[in-house]
């Protein structure tokens, strides 16, 4: 892609992009800085930027007043659990759609995707009733199942688009060499599908991690993940911006760190369906 762009123009574009980037990054940066300020510095007028007495007081306050480790643990278990459960259900379905498409495949895919656009409140109360019936309100298992259901269409769709890119000839060649269905899946299909599955897992962990609508309603204390933690923190501590910032940073740090280390897969995951 060697489009001829003059050097000066290139510098201009780069500067412009970085300006926009900074603008976008600013809210996160500000939250980060504020989390290390004292409450008085946080609302000082004019605002101070970098030169203040950095303190970790807010973090220890938040840790002391709330059960952060439990919320973190819940978030991890729920996000990872729901994603893996979704993958287990979605892989066979996506495999069938991509490699043995029938007349109805496209309709099923479309119908499935459309459920993602339906208002979640429509199934909210029945799910609450079912959860109460089984006595699983405020439990991790309920959230794992519900978030899996919510994200299942996206998981299937992503996997389908990846699987579709695997050329069918390779399977044919494997079959000619005498590979059975089992070997075909283990030795040919799986290695080729791993990058796609990895990206799907990453994206869906983020989606499940950030899902607030369901987690806030279906949990109270025991299974409350970080989204609930931060929303319950915001009410009583509404005016304490430094502590609120610290809590926000603690809620988003794990996912930002994960995102940083898996950028490549993530970007691939985020571009599903769009790459060629």
């Amino acid at each position: 892609m060697a489009r001829a762009i003059s050097n000066r123009k290139k510098i201009m574009w780069t500067a412009l992009s970085w300006g926009i980037g900074l603008l976008i990054f600013f809210p996160i940066l500000w939250t980060f800085l504020t989390s290390f300020k004292s409450e008085a510095t946080a609302i000082s007028d004019p605002p101070v930027w970098f030169f203040f007495d950095w303190t970790t007081q807010n973090y220890s306050d938040v840790l002391e007043r709330s059960n952060y480790p439990l919320a973190l643990m819940n978030s991890i278990i729920i996000a990872v659990g729901s994603t893996l459960l979704g993958i287990i259900i979605a892989v066979p379905a996506a495999w069938a759609m991509a490699f043995v498409p029938g007349k109805k495949t496209k309709d099923v895919l479309l119908w499935m995707l459309s459920t993602k656009m339906l208002p979640a409140v429509g199934v909210l109360y029945p799910l609450v009733l079912i959860a109460k019936y089984f006595g699983v309100m405020d439990s991790r298992i309920l959230l794992i199942v519900v978030l899996m259901l919510i994200n299942l269409p996206i998981i299937v769709w992503m996997l389908y688009t990846y699987f579709r890119e695997i050329p069918g000839e390779i399977l044919e060649a494997a079959r000619m060499d005498g590979a059975g269905l089992k070997n075909e899946i283990i030795y040919v299909l799986t290695p080729m599908a791993v990058p796609g599955i990895a990206s799907t897992i990453l994206l869906n962990i983020i989606l499940a991690w950030n899902e607030a609508f369901w987690t806030i309603i279906l949990t109270t204390v025991n299974a409350a993940p970080l989204t609930k933690f931060i929303s319950s923190f915001s009410a009583p501590e509404g005016l304490f911006y430094a502590k609120l910032s610290a809590a926000s940073i603690m809620a988003i740090a794990p996912i930002l760190i994960m995102g940083w280390f898996s950028q490549k897969q993530l970007v691939r995951g985020l571009t599903f369906g769009a790459v060629k």
Partner: peptide, 16 residues
């Protein structure tokens, strides 16, 4: 940098 906001839940986005 551009993707960072996406990693934030709406709750945190709303607060910020």
């Amino acid at each position: 940098i551009f993707l960072y906001p996406f990693a934030l839940s709406f709750i945190v986005t709303g607060l910020v």
